[in-house]
C-alpha cells in the first residue's frame, strides 16, 4: 500500500478540493483527513460515521477552589501565563487561583509545587476521531476541540488508524489501492506528523509570491525528512509568469512537476453542490485534475 499526503504551505490553495477529486478517481482509496484544524473533507465526502472515539493527547491542571489558599506559588512557577488570582473565593481567601485551560500546556509544574495539593492533573479530552464510510471508500477523520493542543498527536493517530484499515484490506482482498491523506498546512508540528514516512507528498500551491515563498519552506521540510515530493500549481492562469518561475524552481530542487490546474469557478460551484470537481463537471479543469492524478500514480511506481 502506498501513502500519498497532499499538503500546502499556505491555506486556500485548493488542497482539500483536490484530495476529494483524487478520492473519486482512485475509487477504492482509504482516506484520512489530517487537516484537523480546518477539517473540510467531510463536507464533500459526507461520511457516514461507523465508529467514534475520544482523543486525549495530554493533561490539564485544574485548581480545586475549595482547597486553594491563594498563595500564588502556581502563578510563580507557570511559564505559560496560565494562572491568575481570579477564581472564586472560599473560607480561607476572597480570591483563589485559577488556571486558564486554553493557556495551560499540561506541564504539571504547578501540580508539583502546590503546597496544599489543591491542583488536580487529569487527562484532557481534546477531541474525537471517527472511522466512517464514504461513497469512495473508508475514511478516518477527527474533530479537534478549539484551542486544543496535540494536533500532531491526533494527526499521527488518524494516519495510524487509516493505515491499519488499508493494511487489513490489502491483506484480505489483495487490494493495493492507495492511502490518501489530506495533510495539515504550515511547517509546524501537525504537518511534520502528517508527512513523515509517506511514500509521496504532493504540494498544492498557487502562482502568487506568497505561494512561491511557502512552497520553498514546505520543500525544505520534505527534503529534511527525505520524502519524494511533487508539486501541482492550482489556479495557474492567475499569473502565468509566477507559474513559470515556480516550475523552474521546482525543477531545480528535483521535485516532480505534477501539473497545472485552471482558475475555475466550477471548483467552488462543485463545493457548494457537495460534489468533487470530477463528479460535478466534465470540463477542462476536471481533465487537468485527472492528469495530475495520473502523474502521481506514475511517480509512485518509481518510489521504493
Amino acid at each position: 500500500m502506498k501513502e500519498i499526503v497532499v499538503i500546502s504551505g499556505k491555506g486556500g490553495t485548493g488542497k482539500t478540493s483536490l484530495v476529494a477529486a483524487f478520492a473519486s478517481l482512485a475509487q477504492n482509496a482509504v482516506l484520512a483527513d489530517c487537516d484537523v484544524d480546518a477539517a473540510d473533507l467531510h463536507l464533500i465526502l459526507k461520511p457516514d460515521v461507523q465508529e467514534s472515539h475520544d482523543f486525549s493527547g495530554g493533561k490539564l491542571a485544574r485548581i480545586r477552589a475549595d482547597k486553594c489558599i491563594g498563595c500564588g506559588e502556581c502563578e510563580r512557577v507557570c511559564r505559560f501565563e496560565a494562572v491568575s488570582l481570579s477564581g472564586p473565593g472560599n473560607d480561607i481567601i476572597a480570591k483563589t487561583c485559577t488556571i486558564d485551560p486554553v493557556a495551560c500546556e499540561g506541564c504539571g509544574v504547578c501540580v508539583q509545587f502546590c503546597p496544599v495539593d489543591a491542583i488536580d492533573f487529569e487527562d484532557a479530552i481534546n477531541g474525537q476521531w471517527f472511522v466512517s464510510k464514504t461513497r469512495f471508500g473508508p475514511m478516518v477523520h477527527a474533530r479537534l476541540g478549539t484551542a486544543e493542543e496535540n494536533s500532531g498527536k491526533l494527526v499521527s493517530l488518524i494516519r495510524k488508524q487509516a493505515k491499519r484499515i488499508a493494511d487489513e484490506r490489502g491483506a484480505r482482498a489483495n487490494d493495493d489501492s492507495p492511502l490518501l491523506v489530506d495533510g495539515s498546512p504550515g511547517i509546524g508540528c501537525p504537518v511534520i506528523a502528517s508527512i513523515t514516512g509517506a511514500d509521496l507528498v504532493l504540494v498544492v500551491t498557487e502562482p502568487t509570491l506568497s505561494g512561491r515563498h511557502d512552497l520553498d519552506r514546505v520543500a525544505q521540510l520534505t527534503a529534511h525528512f527525505g520524502i519524494p515530493t511533487a508539486v501541482c500549481i492550482n489556479k495557474w492562469n492567475i499569473n502565468p509568469d509566477v507559474t513559470e518561475a515556480i516550475e523552474a524552481g521546482a525543477r531545480d530542487k528535483g521535485l516532480v512537476l505534477a501539473g497545472k490546474i485552471d482558475y475555475d469557478p466550477a471548483v467552488t460551484y462543485a463545493q457548494v453542490a457537495e460534489k468533487t470537481i470530477i463528479e460535478y463537471a466534465r470540463n477542462r479543469t476536471a481533465t487537468q485534475v485527472v492528469s495530475v492524478w495520473n502523474v502521481i500514480m506514475d511517480s509512485l511506481k518509481t518510489t521504493k
Binding site: L144, T146, A147, P185, G186
Partner: peptide
C-alpha cells in the same frame, strides 16, 4: 496564523 489551535490562542 490560520486555524483554531495553540498558535492561534
Amino acid at each position: 496564523p490560520p486555524g483554531t489551535s495553540c498558535p492561534v490562542v
